[in-house]
Amino acid sequence: MHPLYNEFLEYIDKEDKEKCVEFVLSKLDNKEIDVPTLYKEILEPSLNKFYCDAEEENLCIWKEHVRSSIIRTIIELCYPYILKERRERGIKNLNKKVFIGCPAEEYHEIGARMIADIFTLNGYEAIFVGANTPKEEIRDAINTLQPIYIGMCVTNYFTLIEAEKAISLIKEHTEFTGKIIVGGQAFLSNPDNYKKIGADILIQNYGDIEKLAKEG
């Protein structure tokens, strides 16, 4: 567990947006933490904690929403740090577009946002289209953007079905020849599901994205 996680959790448990934001930004400024670590070891775990709680107890939907919104703000604020970090790491622009989105009926978008940022960090041009994207929209976006990768984040296990529909539509009705990458909570307990829905690659951590970038 990251040493900063518990402190962050303390603030976010109180729905204290100001403290959360100040805490994170100060740590980024101090270089006590970098963005991927922030995402991976602080934001993601605290987010997942709420999802689980929400599912089991059903009482804290509003809390989940408040926390998601705090985290969303933090993520927005991280964008300049991503660009800065990329520059500092000397990562050059790969000139490759990556499409990132969530299938229809998938309303959890934070994971996808973070993935998009990680792709950006690794030199890709990541285009995040948001949550709950109907498959026809995805198809049209692909046709227009011509990305090299399609990334789809699936949190809810039921929306795997929608993801599959989108993937087969893409395969049938676009020129897309790249790889389809999936990731998210829905694959946590049963990683094999990614093959079933027709995806090519399952991303389980950010390192996978780095590897991808290196492989070119």
């Binding site: 296990y157 039921f158 795997l160 079905i161 599959e164 307990s189 049963n190 599901n193 079933k196 829905i197």
Partner: peptide, 16 residues
Amino acid sequence: RIIEIRDGKIHLDLYK
């Protein structure tokens, strides 16, 4: 487990 039937075939068979 979710089994998706499409056109009389098992299209998806997903385990949680």
